[in-house]
Each structure stands twice: as C-alpha cells, then as structure tokens.
C-alpha cells in the first residue's frame, strides 16, 4: 500500500499545474498511481485526495467509475478481448472460449503464475479488424486461435517486453510544457475578460 513516490509527486505537481482546477488532474494522477504499483492502492487514493483537494471517498468514487482502474493486484499483462457487436459477429465469443482454454482461467481471472489477467471488454475502436484484443492497451487485430496462442507464448517468453510495458503504464510519452513556452494557466474566477489576442484584428 503505497503513497506516490517523491518522483511521482513531482510529476503529479506538474500535471496539476496544467489545469485551472487541481481536481481536474484526478484521473491522470490515478493513472500515475496505477503505473507505480500496478493497481490503485488505498494509500495512493488518499494521497491523491490531498494533492487535488478532494476527500478519499470522492477520489474512490471517481476511480471506481472507470474500467481501467484496478483496486487489487492483476497480472503483469491484462488481455482485454472485445465482445461488442463487430467483434462478436466475427467470432469474439469463440475467441474468449479459446482464451479460457489456453490460459486455464475464466474471463476476469489471472493465471497461476500471475503473468496474465484476461477480461471481456467492450468496443475498442478497431471494429474493422475484428475480432480484436488489447494487451495492456496494445492491439492485436483479426485474432485467430493460432495468433492468440502465439501472443501468449511471446508474452510468456518475454519477447514483447519492449513493445508492451507492464500493466499500469499506458502512454510511455508524457506531455511536458516548458515554462517559457506555456501560454499560462488561470483559475476561471481570475479571468474577467476575453484573451488579449481576441481583439478583432488579425494576429499575424
């Protein structure tokens, strides 16, 4: 049960500083926490509450609304198999059945070695490439039983370590706004007038 590390608190402060209201950073900070521990711990939620000025209950209320946040340890790799219409039409049910066989766990379960958690997921915006799945939010398209087995074998053999970071890490690139480049962030109540450049004249 870990609060955010010093390094992550620094990142958190940077993220918070981009918003007119600290609370807007709640979801990004929850991702940061999940990146740190693989799932969102209670201490982290309490810590985030302190950082954004919300009660722990409010942070938990927000966090538990969203699918991606886990509140207990999950596999290093979370495989989400899409089961919505386009994929269903192209055999998602069968793929899920096969996955359960291959991994020896039911949907929502984690393999004994703690490496893989497999879940039924909803539409992943890859409907033309059905059936599809995501491994820690990295896609596999037009998945067949064979390609699924190959994926699992690659994961087990660690052949995908470079492509697919451990669960919790989503984007590996962070936005960074250099202090001298930013236009500046203001709380709405501190802004009384139109932006200076919005003066009816051409900007260039």
């Amino acid at each position: 049960m870990a609060r955010l590390t010093e390094e992550n608190v620094r990142l958190a402060q940077e993220i918070i500083s981009r918003y007119p209201r600290p609370r807007s950073a709640t979801i990004p900070l929850l991702h940061l926490a999940q990146e740190q521990d693989g799932y969102v711990t209670e201490d982290a939620m309490a810590h985030i509450g302190e950082l954004v000025g919300a009660s722990s209950a409010e942070v938990y209320g927000t966090a538990s609304f969203y699918e991606m946040f886990k509140f207990h340890p999950v596999g290093k790799y979370v495989i989400n198999i899409c089961g919505t219409m386009s994929c269903a039409l192209m055999g998602a049910e069968e793929l899920m059945h096969h996955a359960e066989q291959k991994l020896g766990v039911k949907m929502g379960g984690t393999t004994a070695d703690g490496l893989i958690t497999v879940e039924r997921a909803e539409c992943q915006a890859a409907c033309t490439e059905a059936p599809c799945l995501q491994t820690n939010y990295r896609y596999s398209f037009r998945v067949t039983p064979e390609s699924f087995d190959a994926l699992v074998d690659d994961l087990r053999a660690g052949r995908l370590n470079d492509e697919i970071p451990a669960h919790g890490v989503v984007a590996r690139v962070r936005q960074h706004i250099p202090a001298d480049k930013g236009a500046g962030v203001h709380a709405p109540e501190d802004v009384k007038a139109a932006p200076a450049w919005f003066d009816g004249k051409a900007a260039l």
């Binding site: 981009r18 946040f69 984007a171 706004i177 480049k181 930013g182 236009a183």
Partner: peptide
C-alpha cells in the same frame, strides 16, 4: 509543436497564445 512554437505562447510569433493540455480517460463509454 510546443518546442517549435506552434502551440503555447505567441504562436508562430504572433500575439495568439493558447495551451493545449493532453488529458486522458480511464474507460467509460
């Protein structure tokens, strides 16, 4: 784009300034 001055302060050297903040969700249609 920030580094090249396309976003942020005085875009393209003009008086136009605006920040674009990347925000991301967590799974809820």
């Amino acid at each position: 784009a920030y580094a090249a001055g396309y976003v942020g302060k005085n875009i393209l050297g003009s008086k136009f300034s605006v920040d674009i903040v990347l925000h991301w969700g967590a799974g809820a249609y």
